[in-house]
């Protein structure tokens, strides 16, 4: 479904990504692991069109998208839950979700997806009229995911959903993500530092180091890999 090949991304003189290639098959969860500054977010930002690659190609459902502006990429079916959530804190929960469906014009479909979002995240339904700034960290993360779902994506990019959340909450969110993947067949590219958790729900994974892929394989393979264990799983 998504094919990234030889991707390079630079911020001025800083080379953030240097030749990453990866494939995300339809219906799967693919994890992108790596330490701080490995280039995971940069990769996602580039897929979403927020950043232009300096070299390499990105293909989505057979079409080159590496030169398409961010707002069009959403329309094509790629939604991102950005690092640090980036919800609209001054707007209400409902307004945030409405904005998630900004590119859609099918009223009935939007209504249906809203209900679906509230089923996955009941707390958002309870707080629909509340200003998003007043939500807790976990609720904000749920809102960010809900907002991305409202665009009815076929590929969801998740950037560190565990960031700053209590382990209990993280588990809960991962459980829901897995449920969405299984029930809706939604393809997910998941960026995580918490390799343990990510490998639990992912089918395949890539490990990045200083902007390059150093390891790739099925989640099981990586869980069994000695090096991964030592540096990322911590046992």
């Amino acid at each position: 479904m998504l094919n990234v090949s030889d991707l390079h991304v630079a911020y001025g003189p800083v080379l953030a990504v240097r030749g990453i290639s990866l494939t995300v098959p339809k219906g799967q969860i693919v994890a992108l692991l790596g330490a701080n500054g490995a280039g995971k977010s940069s990769t996602l930002r580039t897929i979403s069109g927020l950043q232009r690659p300096t070299h390499g190609t990105i293909e989505f459902e057979g079409r080159r998208i590496d030169n398409i502006p961010a707002e069009r990429i959403v329309q094509m079916g790629i939604s991102q839950v950005p690092e640090g959530r980036q919800i609209f804190t001054d707007l209400t929960v409902m307004e945030n979700l409405r904005l998630g469906a900004y590119t859609r014009r099918d009223g009935a479909g939007i209504k249906r997806d809203l209900d679906r979002t509230f089923t996955y995240f009941p707390v958002l339904g309870e707080r629909r009229g509340q200003t998003a700034a007043l939500l807790s960290g976990g609720e904000q993360q749920m809102l960010a995911i809900g907002r991305a779902l409202m665009a009815k994506p076929s590929l969801l990019l998740l950037d560190e959903p565990s960031l700053g959340l209590a382990p209990m909450l993280v588990r809960e969110i991962f459980r829901i993500v897995k449920a969405i993947n299984e029930e809706e067949g939604l393809t997910i590219l998941l960026v995580e530092q918490n390799a343990n958790l990510a490998l639990e729900i992912a089918n395949e994974a890539y490990v990045l180091e200083t902007g390059q892929v150093v390891l790739e394989g099925s989640a099981e393979e990586l869980r069994g890999n000695e090096a991964v264990r030592r540096s990322y799983l911590g046992y």
Partner: peptide
Amino acid sequence: QNRTASRLVG
């Protein structure tokens, strides 16, 4: 409020 997030929702 948030240009990046705005672009991400299209």
